[in-house]
Amino acid sequence: MNLHDFFFGVYPYLAGTVFILGNWLRFDREQYTWKSDSSQLLSKKYMRVASNMFHIGIICIFFGHLGGLLTPHSWVLAAGITDLAHQYMAMILGIIFGLTCLTGGIMLWLRRLYNRRIRATSRLRDIFILGWIMATLLLGLSTIPVSWGHAGHNDPATMIALTTWAQSIVTFSPVPAAIAGVHLAFKVHVVMGMTIFLLFPFTRLVHVWSVPVQYLGRAYQIVRLKRVLAR
């Protein structure tokens, strides 16, 4: 097996397995560590802007990738979106939310490194995971000029290749060869992106799971059953 096949045929499953088992185990065994580790209490300066920009950006990017990569090709076409329009959508939304996320992320990154109180209470993995996300984001943004070039030549092949590959992974019939020819920037971005899933259970990112979406439709009054103690 060559390195390409490993990264795009095996690594996705490796990262996915660690992601699922890691989160499960951490949730079961380390309840007290299941938190966002917010440092807002220590310093609120610029926090509203930085944190909101970063979070809005990254949430949109996440769902953008999810929808863009995993929607079957036929559905997209059926919706009347041409491949080229698809690619322009991806690029334009990517630029908007990528830059939003980048701005917020840089502010958070500077805060984490240069605010003395935040720096003093930061663990290595806090600094590292933010750095990793930012690096992945920058790589993602760096693919846009390449894509723009492709689009200029009416050539959505790379995009089609990436969606084909992504869908092959989630359908458990991996075709690493599908993206053998894409620009290196895409490949590195994809590997780093998958690594985020690998690192996910070991960092503060686990707070993502606990987004209190149920609050949106929750009943007003919740009654908990009395706990049955040892009989």
């Binding site: 499960w24 007003y220 908990r224 059953l225």
Partner: peptide, 30 residues
């Protein structure tokens, strides 16, 4: 048993909702 598996039972209704759905009864882990 497992916090995670217990959470999966989150949607299992313990009793019917009351007060026209404004109140529910849960059996979440305590």
């Amino acid at each position: 048993m497992s916090n995670f598996l217990d959470r999966l039972k989150f949607f299992q209704k313990v009793k019917e909702p009351f007060s026209k759905g404004h109140g529910i009864v849960t059996n979440e882990d305590r």
